[in-house]
Computed example of a mutant assay.
Amino acid sequence: MYTLQSQQPFQSFIDNAISICRLDTEAIGLAAGGSWASGEIDQYSDLDLVLVLARQLAPNVDQMRAYASNFGSLLASFRGDHVGEPRLLIALYESPLLHVDIKFLTPVEFYHRVENPVVLWERDQLLTSIIRQSTAEYPPFDFQWTEDRFWVWMHYAALKIGRGEFLEATDFLAFVRNVVLGPMLHLKQQGLPRGVRRAESTFNQSDLIRLQQTVATPDRASLLVSLNEAINLYEELRDELAPVVLNKNRNAQLAVTQYLSTIQ
Rank of each mutant, 00 (worst) to 15 (best):
L223Y: 03
L187E: 09
E26N: 15
P139I: 11
L51K: 11
V152D: 05
V61A: 14
Y259H: 06
L97E: 07
D46H: 05
A136C: 08
E137S: 09
G191C: 04
G182V: 07
A76K: 14
L47F: 04
L51N: 10
S73V: 12
R194I: 14
P183K: 05
D81C: 05
R220A: 13
L167G: 07
N247Y: 08
W151T: 01
T106F: 02
R113H: 04
L237N: 06
Y156F: 12
L88F: 09
A54V: 00
L120I: 06
R123W: 05
Q144S: 11
D101F: 01
E40N: 12
N70H: 15
M1Y: 10
N228P: 00
N178Y: 02
Q56T: 11
I18Y: 09
D171F: 10
D24L: 15
A32T: 03
T257H: 01
L227K: 01
F110N: 02
V52Y: 08
G33M: 01
F71V: 09
H99G: 06
L23M: 12
F141I: 11
D207F: 05
I131K: 06
P218H: 02
R87P: 01
Y259M: 03
P59M: 09
V100K: 01
H82Y: 13
L241Y: 06
Q213G: 12
L227F: 07
F141K: 13
S261M: 06
A37Y: 00
A174G: 13
K248I: 15
V225D: 02
G191D: 07
F104R: 07
H155E: 03
F141W: 09
W145S: 09
L120D: 03
F71W: 15
F104G: 10
H99S: 14
L97N: 09
T202F: 13
G33F: 01
R22L: 14
L75D: 09
A242N: 12
L105C: 12
L127Q: 03
L23P: 00
R79F: 01
V180W: 03
Q7I: 02
W145F: 13
E122G: 06
R197Q: 12
L187D: 09
Y234T: 03
D15G: 15
A158P: 02
T106L: 08
G164N: 10
I209V: 14
R55Q: 15
Q63D: 14
T170A: 11
V61T: 15
A174L: 11
W145G: 02
E165C: 12
L120W: 07
R177F: 03
L127H: 07
R177Q: 15
N178C: 00
Q264N: 09
